[in-house]
């Protein structure tokens, strides 16, 4: 169980054709991620971190290579199947939160369940429970502009968690937060990891990356290094 491979990519490339020129966002990247791993993807700006994350999250498809997700061949899936995988198996957390501005925290958290067809009473119950788990039970009826940055990111995390996905993908989740709030969010990720969640974290900040148990460094679309982080921040 501990070693079950969730993500298995082989020779993934992503090439953007910019006029005459080809931009290699990813070159022949191969990697495995197991259940309940906590992985940080690091690298300078433009090294391909977001591209990799979008591919892992089934938002984007590679130009070449193979991707097995939970033993399903993602490379062979159409848009519809990918949407379903995103809905059921993947929870996204973005740097800019990406909440719907006109919807309350509860409605935002309910949204993935709308697309999985859950009846509205069950949806509400699940959303409230998940908000409670991220410490926002008292903000359920607030709209994003009535919440602080840290609170918005908690709503976004609740939205990612509400479908109990196989992995949580977070692209620079503390990028728009002050360091104290950022630290609180990292504590929340640590809790989630301890509860058995699989987390992939994209960051360019060293001290944020130190929260992960494994660090993968990218440079120019290539994996530069991939190692166990012995100095993991564990809040024990």
């Amino acid at each position: 169980m501990e070693n079950k491979i969730i993500i298995d990519i082989k020779n993934i490339s992503k090439i953007y054709q910019m006029g005459e020129e080809k931009v290699f966002a990813l070159r022949d990247v191969s990697l495995n991620i197991c259940k309940n791993e906590y992985v940080a993807i690091m690298g300078p700006s433009g090294s391909g971190k977001s591209t990799l994350m979008n591919i892992l999250g089934c938002l984007d498809t590679p130009t070449a290579g193979h991707y097995m997700f939970n033993e399903n061949d993602v490379s062979a899936m159409d848009d519809n199947d990918l949407a379903e995988i995103r809905n059921k198996e993947i929870g996204f957390v973005f740097q800019t939160f990406n909440l719907l501005p006109r919807a309350t925290a509860t409605k935002n958290v309910e949204l993935p369940l709308v697309y999985s067809g859950m009846p509205s009473a069950d949806r509400l119950e699940r959303a409230l429970k998940t908000l409670e788990n991220v410490g926002l039970a008292d903000r359920a009826e607030h709209k994003p502009n009535e919440l602080s940055g840290g609170q918005r990111q908690r709503v976004a995390i609740a939205r990612a968690l509400v479908t109990t996905p196989s992995i949580i993908l977070a692209d620079e989740p503390t990028g728009n937060l002050d360091s104290k709030t950022g630290e609180e969010i990292m504590k929340l990720f640590n809790d989630l990891w301890k509860k058995g969640n699989t987390i992939i974290l994209v960051t360019h900040e060293e001290d944020i990356a130190l929260h992960a148990g494994r660090i993968i460094r990218l440079r120019d679309g290539l994996i530069e290094s991939d190692y166990i982080n012995h100095k993991q921040v564990k809040y024990d």
């Binding site: 949407a83 949204l111 697309y115």
Partner: peptide, 16 residues
């Protein structure tokens, strides 16, 4: 556009 992107990211199908 952004809202549609968000909806798709969390699993809205094209037909939705």
């Amino acid at each position: 556009t952004k809202e549609i992107g968000i909806r798709k990211a969390i699993g809205a199908k094209s037909r939705s």
